[in-house]
Amino acid sequence: MTNQQLKTEIIQRQKAEEEVRQLSLTDELTKLYNRRGFIWLGEREREKAHRHEQYCVLFFIDLDGLKKVNDNYGHEMGDQMIIETANILKQTFRVIDVIARLGGDEFAVLAIVDDYSTIEILEQRLQNNLQKFNQSSCHVYQLLMSIGKVADNNWQKPQPLNTLMMQADEQMYHQKKQKKQCRS
């Protein structure tokens, strides 16, 4: 009787520990990975991709207009905008890709691909899904994104994930800056 109780308690503790670990890696609002989960899993996937001589493509995405939606319609509507963005990313990218909400209005996706044509397919799928959402949506906002991307295929000396993130982030800010200049 005591052994069985002990086994049951051990199993329950292991389940609880797994739940806590999962919560520490997951964004509560979107159910995507959070920054910690993205870096942990992304680094593992990056290493695996380089062993198999595949490309790592990092998309760094900033949701445009979230502050305006929060200010004009409230944070509940802003949260809905973030959730819709997460849904678009889940529809666009594959289950093997690592998708995360890094915080606020920033998202990242690490895709492992065999060739550059797959990168173009993913980009086009994202644009199509955004367009579909915006055309059929009855929301008071449109989903618009600034996107930076960087690909790494140096299998002899792969770049660390944080380096790829910084490069893609710089590209994203460059795109955001260009958008602002076009509006002016």
Rank of each mutant, 00 (worst) to 15 (best):
D97Q: 09
D64N: 13
V109N: 05
E53A: 15
K48H: 07
E43C: 06
G74K: 07
K132Y: 12
A111C: 11
V109W: 02
F59G: 03
K48D: 07
G78I: 02
A111F: 04
A86M: 04
K48E: 06
T92Q: 04
K68Y: 15
Q12E: 14
T30E: 07
L58A: 01
K90V: 13
D105A: 15
C56N: 05
L41F: 14
K132R: 10
T26R: 02
Q91C: 11
D79K: 11
D62C: 12
F133P: 03
L63G: 04
K68T: 15
Q91V: 12
H52I: 04
N34E: 13
I61H: 01
G74Q: 07
I82F: 03
L130M: 04
N70V: 02
F107L: 03
L29I: 06
E45C: 00
K90G: 09
Q127M: 10
Y73D: 10
F38R: 06
E47P: 05
V95I: 08
I11V: 14
E53V: 14
V98K: 00
K31V: 12
D105V: 12
I82V: 12
Y33N: 06
T92F: 05
L41K: 12
E19P: 06
Y116P: 05
I61V: 10
L110Q: 00
V98I: 08
H50A: 01
E45R: 02
E47Y: 11
H75Y: 12
Q54I: 01
L102D: 03
L23H: 08
A16V: 13
I11P: 09
K15N: 14
D64V: 05
G37F: 01
E17D: 14
K132W: 09
S24P: 07
L126P: 01
D64S: 09
E47A: 12
L58N: 00
D71N: 10
A108C: 05
I83H: 07
W40R: 08
A86D: 00
A108P: 00
Q91W: 11
L58C: 00
G103E: 08
A111L: 04
L63C: 10
Y73T: 04
N134H: 05
I39C: 08
I96T: 11
Q135H: 07
G78E: 01
N128I: 11
D27V: 02
D79T: 11
V69Y: 06
I82L: 08
I96L: 13
T85E: 00
G103K: 08
R21C: 08
